[in-house]
Amino acid sequence: MAISAAEVRRVARLARLRLSDEEAALYERQFGGILELMAELSGLDTAETPATASVSALSNVMREDAARPFPEPERLLALAPQSEGGCYKVPRVIA
């Protein structure tokens, strides 16, 4: 199982990760071995097997949709690398 350099770049773009050339080359090399490990599953017959998304016995845990104030919301905003006027600040999106 091999993965091409272009494929590594495509996945990095989807994952919003900027990779250096060295990193991209490393992952290209390593992904082959990891995908080989995953390919073990192809030998398993799962035609009649349903999928398990969660092992929890719980389902649809509901509660009233009631708003509760967060104490000191400014503490949350203070975590942001940049904020202004009670908003998160990001680079200009529309030129």
Binding site: A15, S42, T46, P50, A51, T52, V55
Partner: peptide, 26 residues
């Protein structure tokens, strides 16, 4: 993050992610 993105990406989802969820059942 790359591996996860790869196995969830279009064209690979059934072969990897859905298959692994079925294996988990077993």
């Amino acid at each position: 993050v790359m591996l996860g993105t790869y196995v969830l990406s279009a064209g690979y989802y059934d072969a990897y992610y859905a298959k692994a969820q079925r294996a988990r059942t077993l």
